[in-house]
Nucleic acid binder design. Structure first.
Length: 192
DNA sequence: AGCACGATGCTCT
DNA sequence: GAGCATCGTGCTT
């Protein structure tokens, strides 16, 4: 079991959220679930940054749900939506500034059978699917992604060339006003 | 291949 | 009480 990849450390996350979203592409998201290592390369992210971003959960200031976005970088912000889906984010920027990167898709690498089973044979392209595939729920809200002790962490991966990175508007912002609705703050790689 | 819709429950106004 | 940073199904082209 390869366990020699370096963890991404707080300094990685403590910078502008667009950079964090861009450079999380290619990194490896790892979940230790029931003693088994599940992992995949991050292939799609979205940046949500600051109270001025009207798509960001912090747009109305601090609440109980979004409190983690104001916390130290490198921690998981996990929330529940649509009555059935968990969403995994990595908190970015300096402590006190609310921002995070939504992890939307991975290319599975380890634990393929378990992931496929948990997904009912479907893919892992979409934030709700990602959480379901890796067994992520609210108990992981606040988990330190810079440590292997919490069962969920992110390891460095192969750097991606700019030519492999696609950008576009964030998904699902139906009632968000412009310009926020159309800003190209979604990052993808690998076709699609 | 694409669109419409219902599921389902928590958070905040 | 409204509105979700979604997903799967089922229907139409």
């Amino acid at each position: 079991m390869p366990d020699d990849s370096p963890l991404l450390l707080p300094d990685f996350y403590a910078r502008p959220t667009l950079q964090v979203a861009r450079f999380l592409l290619g990194a490896r998201l790892v979940r230790l679930l029931d003693g088994e290592r599940l992992s995949g390369i991050i292939t799609e992210t979205e940046a949500y940054t600051g109270e001025e971003d009207l798509a960001c959960h912090a747009r109305n200031g601090r609440t109980r749900r979004n409190a983690l976005m104001y916390g130290p970088p490198g921690h998981a912000y996990v929330y529940f939506t649509y009555g059935m889906h968990w969403m995994l984010n990595a908190v970015s920027e300096a402590e006190g500034f609310p921002a995070a990167v939504l992890l939307r898709a991975i290319q599975p690498l380890e634990g393929l059978a378990t992931i496929s089973l948990r997904r009912g044979g479907g893919d892992v392209h979409g934030p709700g699917k990602l959480a379901q595939a890796l067994g992520i729920d609210g108990t992981l809200n606040g988990c330190d992604l810079c440590s292997r002790s919490g069962g969920l962490w992110i390891e460095a991966g192969e750097p991606l060339a700019e030519a492999q990175v696609l950008r576009g508007p964030r998904v699902g912002l139906n009632t968000v006003p412009e310009p926020w609705k159309s800003l190209p703050w979604r990052f993808r790689t690998w076709g699609k």
